[in-house]
Amino acid sequence: MNELKLIKKAIKGNKECLEELLVLHRDQLYRSAYLYVRNREDALDVVQETSYRAFLSIGQLKNEKFFLTWLTKILINCSYDVLKKRKNELPLNNMVEFTGDRREKRVENIDLLEGINRLNEKHKNAIILFYFHDLPISEVAKVMNIPENTVKTYLSRGKKRLKELLGGLNNNGEKITARSI
């Protein structure tokens, strides 16, 4: 069944179709959640909460074309909820540790992720939606409730700031060169 058909059925209340859709997008759901909350357990919580809210409110989705936009919006809200709770409740450390050889390979990437995480929220959202979710500018504008031109501004400012951040030092105190930026 193609995705659009699945979405239509899901909106009509077919839970299996919605589950299939979520599973179809599971990598994206997890990765995006991870970008926000930066640890595996919280990212899984975000996915669970997103799934929960999606099942509760799928009936409210008016146009099947906007399924992903709608889902992404839920995901971002859930991520913020977790971040907020974390701030209020528990000093959760980022328990991300890397074993020896993996560290070598990933240090540059982690810094890029860290850089994205340090961006101003609006710039960060724009970058995640545009680059990682592959949403066109018009859709990013819808998710963020802002005009398209503002999205473009956020993207360019975000990129500029990211370059500045990546010009800094990595975890080992060595100067890193960000690739292809």
């Binding site: 839970k15 919605l18 589950e19 979520l22 599973v23 599971r26 990598d27 759901l29 997890y30 595996r40 899984l44 919580d45 996915v47 669970q48 909460e49 997103t50 799934s51 929960y52 809210r53 999606a54 099942f55 509760l56």
Partner: peptide
């Protein structure tokens, strides 16, 4: 992958 699948299903069950 497994844990994400779990999370999706738990969300479904809760809902």
């Amino acid at each position: 992958k497994d844990e994400v699948l779990d999370a999706i299903r738990t969300g479904k069950e809760r809902a």
